[in-house]
Design a protein around this nucleic acid. Sequence first.
DNA 1: ACAAAAGTGTTCTTGTTACACCCATGT
DNA 2: ACATGGGTGTAACAAGAACACTTTTGT
Lengths: 248, 248
Amino acid sequence: MNDLQLFKERSNEAYEIYLPHISIDCVVFGFHDTSLKVLLLKLKGLESWGLPGGYVQKNEDVDAAAHRILEARTGVSRIFLEQFKVFGTVNRSEPSLTHMPPDLWYRQRFISIGYYALVNYKDIVPQVDDISDACEWKDITGLPEMMMDHELIYKTALETLRKQLNYKPIGYNLLPEEFTMPELQKLYEIILGYTLNRGNFQRKMLAYDILIKHDKSRKGGAHRSPILYSFDTEKYNKALEGGLNTGW
Amino acid sequence: MNDLQLFKERSNEAYEIYLPHISIDCVVFGFHDTSLKVLLLKLKGLESWGLPGGYVQKNEDVDAAAHRILEARTGVSRIFLEQFKVFGTVNRSEPSLTHMPPDLWYRQRFISIGYYALVNYKDIVPQVDDISDACEWKDITGLPEMMMDHELIYKTALETLRKQLNYKPIGYNLLPEEFTMPELQKLYEIILGYTLNRGNFQRKMLAYDILIKHDKSRKGGAHRSPILYSFDTEKYNKALEGGLNTGW
DNA sequence: ACAAAAGTGTTCTTGTTACACCCATGT
DNA sequence: ACATGGGTGTAACAAGAACACTTTTGT
């Protein structure tokens, strides 16, 4: 079966199952190797990359749809997901899909609900499905060309992340259960886009009283092994309610 | 023509004109008489009140739809409008509309895009249309019972307003062209939910260098007439880019 | 005279910034 | 020895909180 036939078959199913005109796009962030990554995929027959997305079933909550879509892509359930913006201009799909037949499901006008997701990089196994060639992590410092308005969606998501750094459990969801102080600082620096003073960062972080210090340390590096921390989720969530003291 | 017939006629038109399953709800804030108001309306045949809302035309940007809907309600164009959240649970319309026939446009499942609007109270003339009995300002301290999930939408909007106080031109859009320092302070206090020290508020506000002081003052009160200010929009917008210094 | 409005001063406290110095530890 | 990690000190400065005193002005 060629690609177009496949799309047509999926199209007929889609008209049955999903609400028309409404789509979901997810910007999935992961942190690995001191840099921030985004999960992108490549649809068959298209040159450019796109954000993982999908549609809302006729009898499904929108948030539930976003979780379902991401679970299919990542193999992980209970992902931290936040809806952040609707993208609703008439021409937002141009010109990526104009080569496809106009009665195809995919060529409707879609109003897309943007979600960002924060995942623990190592938990994820990116899943390619039968209508895509690839599903991979891409470093945000060198993103490929993206279809439709997906670059705008990504940029809006990163901007939202920056603004919500003091109000959402961003560190908790992007880092593994146990992490080191330099890792946490690096994450903050990447999201904010500027460097922070080490001593002050550590002092301030510890003063929030939201971290649990572990006895063990991470062996294997070339130097002194760093201390491992975890978030004290109860204290962390309480502190986030009022926002961590403004200003990084 | 009775109410039901009217709804049915409107319903047939709606299927022609609008995208199905997608609606817009607007929380319109106005400031008057030292208190914050919300524009509510009452649909014919329903006991509870609702937010002004509408649908997206098949060839219309979502933001443009929100503006069109509000212009019809307020008589004002170029309103300050911000999309803030999508409300997309399956059962969000229950139980408000269950007495209507199931094939009616209004009884579809709607995923609603929430906008908040900030308007100059005195510019607005609330417009009743033929499917509503009333369209009125209601003080936020005594809101009536609302249909569907509109109370949740309103609360989310107010919460958003609070969070964005330092990042959006909220004072500029809620106050008339010229206003006094006590009025500005009162507005901040209502949105924040707590009182502020007068001397410090004035000093901080003036230090931002975003206000233009006028020579004239407002006559007619029982006491010393207060000085009138306007926003210096250029400086104001520049200051908002980085956020007014965090913390009120 | 009175009360709201406006302007400013002061003190106390807290937080931020930018360093610097010391120690620990794995290779 | 050396590079990284961890802990803390400190001095200069900026900002916040809480109050108080004064002046202006319309009725």
